[in-house]
Design a protein around this nucleic acid. Structure first.
Length: 315
DNA sequence: ACTATTTCCTGGATGC
DNA sequence: TGCATCCAGGAAATAG
């Protein structure tokens, strides 16, 4: 459930709470661990590092870490939102086939302590909570990081779809929906025969759009979710581009959709769910289309519940 | 190179 | 009331 607006809200909240703090020790749960990097690598990367920043990349939370100790060199603050467009052209590595995006590219680089990053993907039900040490460790806690301030960062995830990893220059596989330019956006979908709804969920194209905001974007753009991407006109794609930007920035403004699991870092609910146009919780289709008043229809597209207005979004 | 399908996972909702 | 079943879906893995 956590999609771009939810992860953005979480990352901002975490940044406010733990930036500057130092990770002193790391505990990782046993059993089937939700780890993408080896446990020892995660522990080694996190321990004794200062949290320089916490930010969102796609649906990932990125903790930018810097070494502690030597006062001599203080690594430059990691690239915040520096024009990713300018990097796009040159960032196509020669080893493009294995540019799976989320992989921890730890090859070479002996200066591993520089620019290291802790990457958290929340999956469906994951959360990162800031606790005091005496707070009860809730069920499904898979990692605890003790901070120098005395606080603890805890990764909790009942359904265990979340993943922890470390990286150095983490890059999402796809483009940032709020940063990509229109012509690039058009290119992403050109020629694809898959339903546009499925294409929107493909993180290799756009990183950050999930089921809720895909439905919302398509409704704003008045595009039927089953239209295949290659049948969309330039005008329709431009409307979709704008729709995505609107749906996501509204989501951020309302601090995420607390449909079921998601809570803001302070434990309260986001408000985005009160402003959704077509997405409905558990197929509750009582609330009609806010534009024309027609009943919302729910169908399945690529195993995903998909909501749309059959009157506004025709094929 | 794509596209479609399956699988993982558990709490809460629903059904009998 | 209780127990079984269904449903939610991000993304890796598998199949076509």
């Amino acid at each position: 459930m956590p999609e771009l607006p939810e992860v953005e809200t979480i990352a901002r909240g975490l940044a406010r709470r733990v930036t500057g703090d130092v990770m002193e020790s790391v505990w990782l749960g046993s059993k089937p661990e939700p780890l993408k990097s080896p446990a020892r690598e995660i522990v080694a990367t996190l321990e004794s590092k200062r949290i320089a920043d916490v930010r969102r990349v796609g649906k990932h939370i990125v903790f930018d870490l810097e070494p502690t100790g030597q006062t001599g060199e203080r690594p430059a603050k990691p690239l915040k939102s520096r024009g990713s467009k300018s990097r796009l052209s040159q960032s196509r590595k020669p080893t493009s086939s294995k540019a799976r995006g989320a992989k921890a590219a730890s090859i070479g680089s002996k200066t591993t302590s520089e620019h290291s990053q802790w990457i958290v993907h929340l999956g469906m039900t994951g959360s990162v909570v800031v606790s005091t040490p005496d707070a009860e460790v809730e069920k499904h806690t898979h990692a605890i990081v003790k901070l120098a301030s005395g606080k603890e960062l805890r990764f909790v995830d009942p359904r265990r779809f979340g993943r922890l990893s470390v990286a150095h220059q983490f890059q999402a596989a796809g483009s940032e929906p709020l940063e990509v330019e229109l012509d690039r956006f058009v290119e992403l979908f050109k020629g694809r025969k898959t339903p546009i709804k499925s294409a929107l969920l493909n993180q290799g194209l756009l990183s950050g759009v999930g089921n809720i905001y895909a439905d919302e974007s398509l409704h704003i753009a008045r595009i039927h979710p089953l239209r295949t991407a290659n049948t969309l006109s330039d005008d329709e794609i431009a409307k979709l581009y704008a729709g995505i930007r609107q749906a996501l920035s509204d989501g951020i403004r309302y601090e995420g959709a607390s449909i079921n699991w998601y809570r803001k870092p302070d434990g309260t609910r986001g408000e985005s769910q009160d402003h959704l146009r077509v997405y409905r919780e558990r197929g509750n289709l009582d609330k009609p289309c806010p534009v024309c008043g027609s009943p919302i229809t729910k169908i399945w597209v690529g195993q995903r519940g998909t909501h749309f207005c059959p009157s506004c979004q025709t094929r």
